Amino acid sequence: MFSNKLVARAMEYAAQAHRGDTRKGGEVPYIVHPFEVAMILKENAFEDKIVAAGLLHDLLEDTEVGIGELRDEFGEEILELVLSASEKLEGRDKRSWNKRKENTINYLEEDADFINKVIACADKLSNARSILRDLKTESGDFWQRFSAPKDKQKWYYESLVYSLKELDGLKMYTEFKSVVAEIFK
């Protein structure tokens, strides 16, 4: 499926950077998420540099990889795509969950271009799929694992659906709307 050298290099690089990390509230290796994001982008017929950016999208937020290192390894264009998919990095740890999510929604509604929205949609669809899978199999207070309660998550995901409406017609956006509706029905 991923025969392009750029995509293969990004897969290996992301796997190394996320080595040992797991998804919130479970034992699933974190790398499953960037791989799923890449598969969503590939299934929606985006070019390899977009798929590679999808693989690398969480490196700056969640690993020790820095901007300079990512630029040296993959070039300015992919760095810019990764930066566009990342929360504002400076001062991130000092901002509340609400503020960070408001910034993401506002960015997607007002400033993000089409490709930035595509990468964000693939990322959020992967997250939503994971939530839905876990909701169906876990008992207890599922929402405790998150940084915000269910009502805030509902607000965030429904706001994302609205902010990504420019993608209407793309398979991934249609699925994203559907999965979000099912999670919060």
Results as ranks from 00 to 15, higher is better:
residue 1 M to D: 09
residue 1 M to N: 14
residue 5 K to L: 08
residue 9 R to E: 04
residue 12 E to Y: 14
residue 16 Q to E: 13
residue 17 A to L: 07
residue 17 A to R: 01
residue 20 G to P: 03
residue 21 D to G: 06
residue 22 T to W: 11
residue 22 T to E: 14
residue 23 R to C: 10
residue 25 G to I: 06
residue 26 G to Y: 03
residue 28 V to N: 14
residue 30 Y to V: 00
residue 35 F to S: 05
residue 36 E to L: 15
residue 37 V to T: 03
residue 39 M to R: 14
residue 44 N to D: 06
residue 46 F to A: 00
residue 52 A to N: 04
residue 54 G to R: 13
residue 61 E to P: 00
residue 63 T to L: 11
residue 65 V to C: 10
residue 67 I to N: 08
residue 68 G to E: 11
residue 81 L to P: 03
residue 84 S to C: 11
residue 85 A to R: 09
residue 87 E to F: 15
residue 90 E to Q: 15
residue 91 G to K: 04
residue 93 D to M: 13
residue 94 K to W: 14
residue 100 R to L: 09
residue 101 K to Y: 06
residue 101 K to H: 11
residue 102 E to T: 02
residue 104 T to G: 02
residue 108 L to K: 07
residue 113 D to Y: 10
residue 117 K to H: 02
residue 120 A to E: 02
residue 122 A to T: 03
residue 123 D to Q: 09
residue 126 S to T: 06
residue 128 A to S: 08
residue 128 A to V: 10
residue 129 R to C: 05
residue 130 S to K: 11
residue 130 S to W: 15
residue 135 L to C: 06
residue 137 T to C: 08
residue 139 S to E: 11
residue 142 F to Y: 08
residue 151 D to P: 05
residue 153 Q to C: 13
residue 155 W to S: 14
residue 158 E to V: 08
residue 158 E to F: 04
residue 161 V to G: 14
residue 161 V to E: 07
residue 163 S to E: 03
residue 164 L to K: 12
residue 170 L to W: 09
residue 170 L to F: 10
residue 170 L to T: 04
residue 172 M to W: 05
residue 174 T to A: 13
residue 177 K to Y: 01
residue 182 E to K: 05
residue 184 F to A: 04
residue 185 K to G: 07
